[in-house]
Amino acid sequence: MAATVRIPTVLRPAMGGLTTVSVEGATIGAVLAELTSTYPLIESQLLNKDGSLHRFLNVYVNDDDVRYIGGVDAPVSDDDEITLLPAVAGGFL
């Protein structure tokens, strides 16, 4: 058993076009580490060099933004649905 990770459009080219992948891991940090070990091209878009979540990535476990439930330590259970969405941001800088 494992959690299902929904992949956003921008990451799919580096992941063979997959829209979802099944990943084992007890925390968001473990799930993302497993994901980036399989698909190393996406690592810089998911994590900072210190292992923290990238500023412009939103990660959700089921309906919860992980920023509010522990960040990379947020727990993940079998059958959870994890959604990755790039932050939508910009501006006149």
Binding site: N58, Y60, D63, D65, R67, T83, L85, A87, V88, A89, G90, G91, F92, L93
Partner: peptide
């Protein structure tokens, strides 16, 4: 959520709910 006159960021919860 950037609360700025020069940059913007869509609230992550609004973003998720929109996709849902």
């Amino acid at each position: 959520v950037a609360e700025s006159a020069r940059i913007y960021e869509v609230d992550s919860r609004v973003l998720f709910q929109a996709f849902r």
